[in-house]
Design a protein around this nucleic acid. Structure first.
Lengths: 157, 157
DNA sequence: GATAATTAGATCGCGTGCGATTTAATCGCG
DNA sequence: CGCGATTAAATCGCACGCGATCTAATTATC
């Protein structure tokens, strides 16, 4: 029988060899990078992501937001309540189907979009010009990986 | 009523155009993918990452672990206490410098390494063979991006 | 050797993520 | 029409992340 020898298994357990750790670390560093830009607006990164969705398409049910950002109501309900408290969104039951909560933007919420317009560029300021191509390719690879993971979640192992 | 201004169509604020969201989503999906493999061992992904470090190099101070996984004591102290409660590690003040807490593996903690040896391969089971190259390249790009972000954190903007 | 500055962890508070369960509204089927 | 199944959010509990602060130990300076 073919057995993986211990050293090859061991090497795969090295932190530095793990794609997953790179993903985990990069995601946290990214959130930190957003912070100085979002803090003046009173926003966290997940809140900002939800607003990105709403700026594209509001009003919008909680589950529609959830599909877009891949979060469930157990995360979204408190997050949306905070956005409501901040005065950026409203939450109201749909009259036709009382199970559904429609999330809409307030005037302040729509105005916020303008204040955020410069954020993507500001984040890219520190990136050398010759890295931009690589970042685009990186996003492509990430999206394909996301596709794989979403698919394997849907199917039972 | 569509009220799209001229810039909104191609805006960098579109969710689908954002590398950062891909990063955020991929990281969460990855954590979920680990779950069925780690849950039987009573571990979360961050705990597993800390163990990866300790399997390479233990005993080890809290701050050494922190440097490796890029986490501070406010996250690590409770996490390590949970690993201690699970019986996988011990925590003890260093006799030479009482400020330092040395984290060491227990016998159970060392044994756990064997049980985790197959995890990297199992995660890759769902990945088509022709995607493996891309994933390696993805890790390279992520690590370069991490390098950029760590550097821009160190320096003032 | 006393004391100020530094350092390592611990603690606190808040906002996610998410598995699990609950509640309420709607749907489906006889 | 009635009633069980389904669905949408909300709620609960726990484990991160992390900014901010605190405590205790060590080092540096005089």
């Amino acid at each position: 029988m073919k057995t993986c020898n211990q050293s090859s298994q061991a090497s795969l357990l090295r932190l530095d060899s793990q794609l997953c750790f790179s993903l985990y670390a990069a995601s946290r560093l990214m959130t930190r990078a957003y912070q100085p830009l979002l803090e003046p607006l009173g926003l966290t990164y997940p809140q900002y992501v939800v607003l990105l969705v709403l700026w594209e398409d509001a009003p919008c049910s909680v589950s529609q937001v959830g599909q877009r950002v891949m979060l469930n109501s157990n995360t979204l309900t408190p997050l949306l309540k905070r956005l409501e408290q901040l005065g950026y969104v409203t939450r109201a039951r749909n009259a036709d189907d009382e199970r559904v909560v429609e999330v809409a933007l307030t005037t302040a919420g729509r105005k916020l979009r303008g204040k955020c317009a410069g954020i993507p560029q500001k984040l890219m300021e520190g990136v050398p010009a010759d890295s931009l191509d690589e970042l685009l390719q990186l996003k492509g690879s990430l999206d394909r990986l996301i596709g794989l993971m979403v698919a394997s979640e849907a199917e039972p192992v």
